[in-house]
Simulated assay, not measured.
Amino acid sequence: MIKQNQLNESNMKPMSGYLAPLVRDIAPSGIRKFFDLVTASKEDIISLGVGEPDFSTPWHVREACVYSLERGNTKYTPNAGVYELREAIAEYLYDSFQTKYEPANEVLVTVGGSEAIDLALRALIVPGDEILVPEPSYVSYSPITRITGGVPVGVETFAKDQFKLTAEALQACITPKSKVLVLSYPSNPTGGIMTYEDWLPIAKLVEEHDLIVISDEIYAELTYGQKHVSFATLPGMWERTILVSGFSKAFAMTGWRLGYACGHPELISAMLKIHQYTVMCAPAMAQVAGLEALKHGLGEKDQMVESYNQRRRLVVQGFRDIGLECHEPQGAFYAFPSIASTGLSSEQFAEQLLYEGKVAAVPGNVFGLGGEGFVRCSYAYSVSQLTEAIDRIGNFIRKL
C-alpha cells in the first residue's frame, strides 16, 4: 500500500484538483444528509425525511419478477425499453390523464424518473442556457442543470398562493437566455398542485417565449380531491413538453428504479442517444414488474392513495394543533409546515428536532427559494409513527 507521505513527495495534486469544478463544488443532497444521520444513529428516531412509500411492492408484482427470473429473463432489452411495457405506459397515460403517445418512438423507459430528468436536461442544454425552476422544488433539478453547463433560475412560489406557480412570478424571471421550464406538480416538497385554469397563463408564457417544458409528474396519481392535470394536455403544449414519470411513488416501487419519459419523437430520440451510451437499458426484471403493475396493480394503487389521504389529514391537523401553520397539501405525500414562529432557521430547527426531539425532517431551505422557514415532513409512514412523531414535535416546540 502506498503511504500518504509517498504521495505527498510526488508531483500529484490534491485529488480535488483533478475533479471537474462543476461537480466538485456541488453540495451533497440535503435530503440524504438527514437520511444518513438517521441511518447512522442507534437511537429511537422517527424519520419523516425520505419520500418513500411504507408499502411493499404488491406481491403479484414481485412474483411476476421472480417468475421471469426463473425463466432466465436476464438479457438486455431494447434501449428504449420492452415494447409491451412502452405500449402499456402509453395506454395508461391516455386512460388516466388523456395524454397520447406512440409507444414506438415517443416513450422511453429509464432507470427511474431521475434518469429521465437528467437525459432531458442534457439533451436540451447548451452552456449558458437558463433553466427556470419553480421553488421550493425537488433538490436535483438545479445541480443537474449546473453539471450540464446551464444556469438554474429559481422562480419563487409562496404558501399564500398554496405554492402554485403564478404567471407574474414566471414572467419576472424570463430573459432572452431562458430555454427550459422545469415543472414539478404535484410538488415535492410542498404538496401543491396546479389546476387547468392555473396552467393556462403559464402555457401562454411558454408559447410567447418559445420555451421547452420538462414536466415531472411522478406524483400525478397522488392527488386528493382534484384530478391531476398534465401540462402536456394544454393547447399547443404537447409538442413543447417532455413528460417524466415512473413507478416509484404510486406503485411503491422505489428500489426497482423504473421510470419513463414521453414526448415529441425528436426529443425522445435525442434522449435515447444518451441513454444507450450510458446505461444501455433499464433492468429487464424491473420492466417485467412495471408491466405487471400497470396491467393488474391499479386497484392496489388506489388503496394506497386513500391511505395517504387519511394520513394527510391527520398530519396537517396535527401540526396545526401544536401551533405550526401548515397549508393543506393537495398532492404528493408531504406536509410543509412553517416553523417561523419558533425563531429558528430551517436548518437549526431540523437539527435540534433530530437530536432533542428524536424526529427527522428535512429543512426547507435545501429546496431553494421560499423554503426557508419551513420543514418537509413525509406522511408516507404508518399512522402510529405519524402520531408519535407529531407528539414528539409538539413536546420539542414546548421546550424551546
Rank of each mutant, 00 (worst) to 15 (best):
F333W: 12
N309E: 03
L234W: 05
P235W: 05
A282L: 10
V244N: 00
A286N: 10
S248W: 07
R257S: 13
Q310E: 13
T241R: 00
M253P: 12
G331F: 03
V316H: 10
K273G: 12
K227A: 11
A335Y: 01
F247M: 04
G318Y: 06
R257Q: 09
A282S: 14
A232Y: 01
G246V: 07
R257K: 12
K227Y: 04
K227L: 06
A340K: 12
A270V: 03
P283M: 08
K227C: 04
S248N: 09
A289Q: 07
Q287Y: 04
A282V: 12
L291A: 04
S248C: 07
A250P: 07
G255E: 12
T342N: 04
K273H: 14
S245K: 03
L344G: 04
V288C: 03
I268M: 01
A284P: 05
F333I: 14
E292F: 01
M237Q: 14
I274F: 07
E306I: 09
V229K: 07
A286L: 08
R311E: 07
R240D: 12
V315L: 11
H296M: 12
W238N: 11
L344K: 03
A286R: 06
E325T: 14
A252D: 08
M271E: 06
H296D: 12
E239I: 06
R240L: 13
L243S: 13
E292L: 03
F319R: 11
F333G: 12
G255Q: 07
G331S: 06
E292W: 02
I322W: 02
L294F: 03
K301V: 11
I268N: 02
A284L: 08
M253R: 14
C262E: 03
Q330S: 08
Q226G: 04
S248D: 15
K227H: 06
I274C: 05
W238C: 07
I268W: 02
I274A: 04
P283R: 06
G297T: 03
A261C: 01
Y277L: 13
G259Q: 01
F319N: 14
R240M: 11
I322K: 01
H327L: 14
G331K: 02
V288K: 00
Y260K: 05
Q310I: 13
L324P: 02
G255S: 15
G297A: 04
R240Q: 10
L314R: 05
H327I: 14
K273A: 10
E300L: 05
G318M: 05
L324N: 00
G343A: 14
H264W: 05
H275K: 15
R257C: 11
R257A: 10
S269Q: 14
G297N: 05
K295C: 06
T233V: 15
T223Y: 00
Y224Q: 00
M304R: 15
H264Q: 13
L267A: 10
L298S: 08
R313G: 03
T241E: 02
S307R: 13
E292V: 04
H264V: 07
A286D: 08
I218F: 09
R311N: 15
M253T: 11
G255N: 10
E292D: 06
S245R: 01
R311H: 14
H275Y: 05
P265K: 07
M253K: 11
E328H: 08
G255R: 08
E266P: 07
S341M: 09
C262S: 11
M271K: 06
F231T: 00
D302W: 02
S269T: 09
R257L: 05
R257T: 08
M285N: 15
